[in-house]
Design a protein around this nucleic acid. Structure first.
Length: 789
DNA sequence: AGTGCCAAGATTTTT
DNA sequence: TCTTGGCACT
């Protein structure tokens, strides 16, 4: 492993004879340069042009990784080295794939109709499997199960094996099997030593039973999309050979995130010719906990003999101070290939600012104030983000921002297609389209309630199992008998009849119309219309959105295929809002100003990472911190609190060790805003003397200037705020606040709030109302978030 | 079938 | 401390 010593930052001038010098030399060695290479530096060009043989591009944060990848594809096409159909290009997320497609299109001017083999590992896996399904014991119209289906199936299997569900939860089994699949192990390949981990060694059996059941359902889970490809290639060398012939060039994005199965998949395909180019950054490997092997990237040169390695180290994103702080931090990791980011910008910018406050509420207040100040200074909220380690941290920010009336947007969290109402609706569509889809049928058989209880369902299952037929068929046949009581029998036969009626109608009507018919006639829409809970209106809105998004597809089948793999949905974010997200979901993004709260021992680095994975866990946490810092273009502001509530109990906390790892030249303690505890010399935290030891942690918060300012601030709010009219929050609901009422609410009036649901106005104070919510209790809210009801 | 009580668990997340 | 899921009871 090549390690670079002395990873110091060189903000102004690169080392003599260093990259810039080489860059200019190379540029001078005049060779006609293609227009698409304009503005690229020497290393980037090298990475684009070295298309023969294995290549590893170590691309640091903000060094133009995506640009290199897309230009490289453009270059391969422009030089006629391969046709679009001969390039295999894999990414991890649909978003990345989409972005790449767009950029390639722009690059070559749309002359190339698509890249059939550009996509995620999983979507390419599906494509391969649909073509060769019979070879691995599937039919080519197999269904793809998501995590939820997976767990329900495993529950059934655990039950069937008479294992105590309490002691051995299905979720855990799902995780274990998943991790086995991540490692590329089929049921018969799991090492004996690894099987004992579940239900006294029954893990292997259960794995096999689960796979058998999947085959019977003609279904696969996400892991199978890769694993079955491995099986396919291994058992059918001729098929593999065909793809060797097809794929002249292979490109892999985010290589540091690949797991073993993906690695083997790539290895098999790259055997043909070794034109494989992997782009990644070992310093940004943050998915070890879900099977990613940093080792894949660290080992690249060994795995692909003769591999060339190119480092992209010129950062185009952040100021010198931010890069300096990030570099100083990541330097503390041992397991890395070593890169030294530098920037040519003369901008050092401001040092990273570290502030400390009393607790998480104070933290939210302080950050809220800071954001408002920037906003007053003309900065767009869209250019700011709050990046947290764990999602529970988001809450204090949301609460605070709702009170302030500050627009925010939570990124990540439950995705559109994972929402209950969407999954229910999809289950209806699936059951209609694929009468053999037992899981879908089970999901909807009693939703909405039709009076089909356990008794009926058990009977139905037994009936189906005895005859080895799908549930829907079993239901149909069962209704011909006298086995059921009249009521459930009627309910069940109505459902079965409806399904087949819809199936017939589907031939003649557009699929969006069918979808509406199904949701209406099944009583599903009505079920939510009658629901008085806070999220019911949002759910109905989501169902409408679902139908809308179906329009883009030709058929119901095409739509279902798409959403099985593409679980994200493009939300048009046309309003100005601060982004709140986890550090994990921030990878790949950038913002002018980045707020990094919660830098405390135990939270960040997270205690569990330390306990479970020791030093490597700590290093992954550190990489996470590095990712956080390097998201910032102009300013990074770190916070830590003295007291945090963990599982309900207040605990005083120690500043994160990562703070001590930030070089003093690039990080500054903010004395102005945060008046808690001297940062003086109490000396000797758990990790030796620290700049951040707080002396009087328990000083009364409420006498501090910060608190008083905050108080003052909230008093003034009534007059200052609410000039912008109704605001939209995109919390967990997609629905818009629409025609929000004007600021006139009456005491005792019935109101609706996006987050808290229905309630009665209990008190009015300017535009701030106290509302007794049916579900959420008494809350203070700004009136622009309320609607009359 | 719907309510209510108790116990457990409470990083990170894509496909 | 708070949420969630499972189970028993009505």
């Amino acid at each position: 492993m090549a390690t670079r010593p002395n990873p110091s930052v060189t903000p102004h001038t690169p080392k003599a004879g260093g990259l810039a010098a080489r860059a200019s030399k190379q540029a001078a060695a005049a060779r006609p340069v293609a227009p698409y290479m304009d503005g690229m530096n020497a290393e980037q060009r090298d990475a684009v042009e070295s298309i023969d043989g294995p290549l590893l591009v170590l691309a640091g944060a903000g060094t133009g990784k995506t640009r290199v990848l897309t230009t490289r594809i453009g270059h391969i096409l422009a030089t006629g080295s391969a046709h679009p159909g001969q390039i295999l290009s894999v990414t991890f997320t649909n978003k990345a794939a989409r972005e790449m497609k767009e950029r390639i299109g722009r690059l070559i001017g749309g002359a190339v109709e698509g890249m059939p083999w550009l996509g995620t590992f999983h979507s390419i896996g599906v494509k391969l499997l649909r073509r060769h399904a019979e070879l691995v014991g599937l039919k080519s119209n197999f269904t793809i199960l998501d995590t939820d289906d997976q767990i329900r199936l495993m529950k059934q299997i655990i039950k069937a094996e008479n294992i105590d569900e309490k002691r051995w939860p299905a979720r855990q089994l799902a995780n274990i099997i998943d991790s086995w699949k991540n490692r590329g192990w089929s049921a018969d390949q799991v090492p004996k030593g690894d099987m004992g981990s579940f239900a006294n060694g029954k893990g292997g059996e259960l794995y096999q039973a689960y796979q058998d059941r999947l085959k019977a359902l003609n279904a696969v889970d996400f892991g199978d999309l890769l694993l079955e490809c491995l099986n396919l290639f291994r058992k059918n060398p001729d098929v593999l050979k065909e793809y060797h012939g097809r794929f002249k060039y292979i490109l892999v994005d985010e290589y540091q995130d690949t797991n073993v199965a993906q690695y083997m998949w790539l290895r098999l395909l790259a055997q043909g010719n070794s034109n494989i180019c992997c782009v990644g950054d070992d310093d940004q490997s943050i998915y070890g906990w879900r099977g990613a092997e940093v080792d894949n990237i660290l080992r690249f040169e060994k795995d692909f003999p003769g591999a060339k390695v190119i480092r992209l180290e010129r950062n185009y994103r952040s100021t010198g101070h931010i890069l300096g702080a990030a570099a100083g931090l990541i330097e503390n990791n041992e397991d890395r290939l070593g890169k030294t980011l530098f920037t040519d910008t003369a901008e050092m910018g401001n040092p990273v600012i570290i502030s400390s406050v009393w607790d998480s509420e104070e933290e939210a207040r302080a950050i809220g104030e800071d954001i408002e100040q920037l906003q007053r200074g003309g900065h767009a909220l869209n250019d700011m983000a709050i990046l947290v380690r764990a999602s529970f941290q988001m809450r204090s920010f949301e609460d605070r921002f709702v009170t302030l009336g500050l627009n925010y947007r939570v990124i990540g969290g439950p995705r559109f297609y994972e929402r209950m109402e969407i999954r229910d609706a999809l289950a209806y569509f699936r059951a209609m389209l694929q009468p053999a889809d037992d899981l879908a049928f089970e999901r909807i058989v009693n939703t909405p309630r039709r009076g089909l209880g356990d008794a009926t369902l058990n009977l139905l299952h037994a009936f189906a199992r005895a005859r080895s037929i799908p549930l829907i068929q079993a239901a149909h046949e069962l209704c011909q008998t006298e086995e059921l009581k009249p009521k459930p029998r009627k309910a069940l036969s109505d459902l079965v009849n409806s399904l087949s009626r819809w199936r017939e109608q589907a031939d003649n009507l557009p699929h969006t119309e069918i979808a509406e018919i199904i949701l209406d006639e099944s009583g599903y829409t009505e079920m939510w219309q009658n629901d008085r809970s806070a999220d019911a209106p949002g759910r109905l809105e989501n169902l409408k959105e679902l139908i809308r998004s179906m329009e883009e597809f030709e058929s119901m089948g095409g739509f279902l295929e798409h959403i099985a793999l593409v679980m994200d949905v493009d939300t048009q974010e046309d309003y100005d809002a601060v982004s709140i997200m986890t550090l994990h979901s921030a990878k790949g993004l950038e913002f002018d100003t980045v707020y990094l709260p919660g830098w405390e021992e135990g939270l960040f680095p997270h205690q569990r990472a330390l306990d479970e994975s020791g030093r490597s866990g700590l290093e992954e946490e550190r990489r996470l911190a590095y990712v956080g810092l390097t998201r910032a273009k102009k300013a990074a502001k770190i916070w830590f609190v003295s007291n945090r509530r963990i599982h309900g109990t207040w605990q005083s906390s120690i500043p994160s060790r990562f703070l001590d790892e930030l070089p003093e030249t690039h990080a500054e303690i903010n004395e102005g805003n945060s008046s808690y505890g001297g940062y003086g010399s109490s000396g000797g935290g758990a990790y030796g003397a620290s700049r951040f030891d707080t002396q009087d942690t328990f000083r009364n918060t409420y006498s501090t200037p910060g608190w008083q300012r905050a108080q003052q601030h909230s008093k003034n709010e009534g007059t200052k705020r609410n000039s912008g009219g109704p605001r939209t929050i995109e919390g967990e609901l997609v629905a818009k606040s629409g025609s929000a009422a004007s600021s006139n609410f009456a005491l005792g009036e019935r109101v609706f709030h996006m987050k808290f649901g229905y309630g009665l106005v209990a008190q009015i104070d300017g535009n701030k109302l106290t509302v007794d919510f049916d579900k959420a209790g008494r809350k203070k809210v700004v009136d622009s978030f309320l609607e009359t009801h």
